[in-house]
Computed example of a mutant assay.
Amino acid sequence: MKEQVIPILRVADAAASVRWYARLGFVQEWEHRFEPDLPAFVDVARGDVHLFLSEHAGDATWDTLVYLRVADVDAVAREFGLPVEEAPWAREVHVTDPDGNRVRVGTPREE
């Protein structure tokens, strides 16, 4: 088994969040509900990078910040119509999901 850390983000509408995270290249892998009308818990993945999106009140807090390192930050910037910011460590864009969770997306600078 490959060990990994998977951030859990609090969301109000998992289906809407899955569509939003698709703009960052994530695809839904699975969804769990204890009963059909209970809150959803969803896994989205971009390659080996996973995020859990949870409608459950106790799983996470709003306004979380996640850093996503990608090979091509320019593609993300185009998708969201944002300028790329130049930082000493990476080229970055900052986006906010529909629930206020922040995602900083960066391509590291070559050394």
Rank of each mutant, 00 (worst) to 15 (best):
D13I: 05
A40R: 03
V27N: 12
A14E: 10
L24I: 14
T61G: 15
P36C: 12
F34A: 15
Q28G: 06
Y21C: 12
S54P: 02
A15F: 06
D37A: 15
A40D: 01
E35A: 02
F26Q: 04
A45P: 08
L53V: 06
F26T: 07
E29G: 07
R46C: 05
L24M: 14
R10W: 02
W30P: 10
E35R: 08
F26I: 07
P7Q: 01
D37M: 15
S17H: 03
P36H: 09
A40P: 08
A15G: 04
H50D: 08
D48W: 14
G58V: 14
G47K: 10
F52W: 15
D59Q: 12
R33H: 00
D43C: 08
A22K: 13
L53E: 06
E31D: 15
F52L: 12
R33F: 04
V18Y: 01
R10Y: 03
A14T: 00
F52Y: 03
G25M: 15
D13N: 02
P39L: 04
A60N: 00
V44M: 03
D48F: 11
R33N: 09
H32V: 11
F26Y: 12
D13Y: 04
A60L: 02
Y21Q: 14
P36Q: 03
W20T: 09
R23T: 04
V18Q: 05
S17G: 05
W30V: 14
G58I: 10
Q28I: 10
A14L: 01
V11C: 00
V42Y: 07
